[in-house]
Design a protein around this nucleic acid. Sequence first.
DNA 1: GTTAGCACTCTCCTCCTTAGAGTGCTAACC
DNA 2: GGTTAGCACTCTAAGGAGGAGAGTGCTAAC
Lengths: 355, 355
Amino acid sequence: MARRRRTLGPLDLRAQAILRAVIEEYVTTATPVGSQALVDRYALHVSSATVRNILAELEMNGLLTHPHTSAGRIPTDAGYRMYVESITDVIPLPAVEQLMIRHQFGQVEFASEHWFRLAATTLASVTRAAGLATPAKSHDAHIRRIDLVGINERMASLILVLREGSIKQALITLDSDESIDQSTLNQVAALLNERLGDVTAKRAAVRLANLREDDRVQALARRVGERVVKIVSEYDAAAIEEVFSDGLLNVMEAPEFAQSDKLRKVFSALENRAYLGELVGSVAGAGRIQIFIGHENQPLEMQDVSLVLAPYGRPGRAIGVVGVLGPTRMLYSQAIGTVRFVSGLMNELVEHLYA
Amino acid sequence: MARRRRTLGPLDLRAQAILRAVIEEYVTTATPVGSQALVDRYALHVSSATVRNILAELEMNGLLTHPHTSAGRIPTDAGYRMYVESITDVIPLPAVEQLMIRHQFGQVEFASEHWFRLAATTLASVTRAAGLATPAKSHDAHIRRIDLVGINERMASLILVLREGSIKQALITLDSDESIDQSTLNQVAALLNERLGDVTAKRAAVRLANLREDDRVQALARRVGERVVKIVSEYDAAAIEEVFSDGLLNVMEAPEFAQSDKLRKVFSALENRAYLGELVGSVAGAGRIQIFIGHENQPLEMQDVSLVLAPYGRPGRAIGVVGVLGPTRMLYSQAIGTVRFVSGLMNELVEHLYA
DNA sequence: GTTAGCACTCTCCTCCTTAGAGTGCTAACC
DNA sequence: GGTTAGCACTCTAAGGAGGAGAGTGCTAAC
């Protein structure tokens, strides 16, 4: 009995080829794949009976499964995993599409804020899955610029620009005895920019200690500075700033999500910020493309989908993540190629910004 | 034949009460309403036969319809419209919920940027439909503050704060012969703030003409100022800046969207920015709460949903819109009450900001 | 080790029947 | 006149039977 012998062993080349064929067939047709269909459509040079033996073997290894006795095989998550690991020749994105994407990035305003959104949109349209992207963020952000704009006698808008590109806005109430005019605010902002320029939250807190309480401008600067430190610290602590997604309609069209309760799960998945943050952190840490297939995701609502995520940005400075989310029955090879290209492009753009 | 007589005439009180009963019953049960069910659950003091006569009459008037001969009645869009018009006693949001919402608004950072998102979230959770909100925007925005932050020798980040609260960011390339340092940028920003403080795009363009080309700072200021004018003009021209939505999962749970193709329509509806912009414009123009029911929406994908939208903000300054999107089978009375409360709260908050 | 042959299993589709809900009409009633 | 009971009629939804078809797993021969 051929299949018993291999229960625990590694797969021979032919079995691998057939696993591959099953997956590729299933990914395109979305219906269970039978032995005859494989013989017909792939040049296997064996009979359907032999293929059946190998399919049974693959099933024993937990790589394939059966919806029911008289149906063809469908891949398990473990099957997809083995398939993905075996892809060494990732299909690079066709040159035509590469050019088209570059052109689109050239069309938008030159600012990282636009790029990550466009990255999600692009990934969605190319892979026909949902595109995901987060802005590049640091865990050790540097203050770049502080600006104060008076709103009325007691309130001002604080505008904080981080070296990483983010802009934070907050309203501050200035409970001073006398009303404060814009020129005072300008002095406060100038003082803060001088003292806190290009420093982290931690360092900024130290520098604020030197401000004197008996001087009006310095006292105000101290108050505003403390608020700045708080905002930057909160930014540092957050796992992700925002996950932008596009092309959810693509995922809705997949036949496996025809029942609306399955679809609901996908949407709650996208609202599971905590888990997405975790994944993004893991991808940013690994520094390379990562794939999460079905049950490899802990949250229940994520177990019908796969993610292909890649980091971009400058390690040690700011890291963001781009990727796609689709059904586990996904064109992994194309997804990997596309995500790889887009993350590379984002790297180039960010590099260009800092050069 | 009673029903023939009334084909074109107005409805008597009893017919109105029965229309109301049908709608309220259908809204809660989501199944066609029969004559017996109405007699059982509502104190109509007539027999089911009489109710049947009136139902036939309402159907002739186009206010009700039949899925098939042996089913109960369901309201048409015209029926909902008549019902909505007849609601004079909108249920105000219960005091407990009002307090809860006020508390939530107190928890977030005091900034309009956070408010409109929270408004959408709140509307979604209270009405169990999708909550929508746009930031308040003007068609005649005033420049409040300009800031330039150098990125490298040839590029700077332009930060533009509008009186309306929006912040715009753009990257500008300074193709000057010599590299430009931050102190030059500060001079340019100071000059621009002095010249363009609190003016509209149109006025700003005029004022830029006075800048001399032979002075380096003024020449730079002119270039940056032109960019500012362009950004503000684009902002002015856009119908809406952004529509934030939350609680889509609520809509997904409605039984009428159990088939995924209907659901897909709802999602494409939300991506129909052009039409949403049109609606928002109409609501902002009308200056009061407006309701769009099913087929009253021109786009096909919108014809299964209703919207209850209300403006907020300061007329002549900046106007935004908050509201809900749900199935046409919606608790209009509650939706109106909630939207009314939230828009009122937003008004209060904005007022407080400018006071 | 591979293959043809074949019994077997299970789904999916269609057709049919039945129960039930709700209608519209008629004729009687107040 | 409007209102009501009674009743035939219509249509859906649910359940069951039967057959086609796909695909398997096993056996025995190659």
